[in-house]
């Protein structure tokens, strides 16, 4: 999923200060799962903002709406009847959702309420960690199912580096060394030999090397 974290309240208070009526948006997808911007977080933020302003004698009118998905125009369209009365929009969706709302409603100021972080997996309740960097040319099949691009601090294709000790990374003693994990997994699979093969330099063009990316599925887009 795409993970995110709420921005500090003080930053959000400054964003909405000039306005009296705002639309606070949540998204039912990734940000709900990582507890950053679902219906519940929208409720908590609305309550927090109302209190923060009422403390200073100001009444902030907030309408809360959580869309099924904020990165799809079909769902964003549902906001049309509510846009008229809103002076600004605060969105708790990931960057994709925020931009989709901004694109559809050209004349409304739209502010992000979360910082979008990374594509990750849940380690356990309340802990998420980065797993995929969207490099566009997946190597998991040869690295034992552990991504050296997302999980090695140096994105090494032929690791580990000298900073790996006791299975941990020199960047942070709590951080697993991805190449240690790769080696352990290859060993478990009986594929130690594969480790001996040098991986060629990675072609970064399928990543961000050639500008913003787009997928066009002719059969669906027609």
């Amino acid at each position: 999923m795409i993970t995110a974290e709420r921005k500090p309240l003080s930053e959000l208070v400054e964003c909405v200060r000039p306005y009296g009526r705002i639309l606070l948006l949540g998204c039912n997808e990734c940000v709900t799962v990582c507890a950053a911007g679902g219906r519940k977080e929208v409720g908590l933020l609305a309550s927090s903002l109302k209190m923060a302003f009422s403390k200073d004698g100001k009444n902030l009118d907030i309408k809360e709406i959580t869309l099924e998905r904020q990165c799809d125009p079909e769902y964003v369209e549902e906001l049309a009847p509510h846009m008229g009365e809103a002076e600004a929009v605060l969105s708790m969706a990931c960057g994709c959702g925020v931009q989709e709302v901004a694109r559809r409603f050209m004349d409304k100021p739209v502010f992000p309420a979360v910082n979008t972080k990374f594509m990750g997996a849940s380690e356990r309740q309340g802990i998420w960690s980065e797993r995929c960097a969207g490099c566009g040319d997946c190597v998991l099949g040869i690295t034992g199912g552990i991504c050296p691009i997302a999980r090695c601090s140096k994105q090494l294709m032929n690791g580990p580096c000298g900073g790996s000790s006791g299975g941990k990374c020199e960047v942070d003693a709590e951080m697993d060394c991805a190449w240690q994990l790769i080696w352990d997994r290859l060993k478990a699979l009986g594929l130690e030999k594969r480790y001996e093969e040098n991986m060629p330099a990675k072609d970064w063009r399928p990543g961000r090397g050639a500008g913003p990316r787009k997928i066009i599925r002719e059969d669906l887009a027609r």
Binding site: K40, G43, L44, S47, S48, K50, M51
Partner: peptide, 11 residues
Amino acid sequence: VDMLHIMKAFE
């Protein structure tokens, strides 16, 4: 007791 219940009480 949801976090929101507590917040609403204060609100």
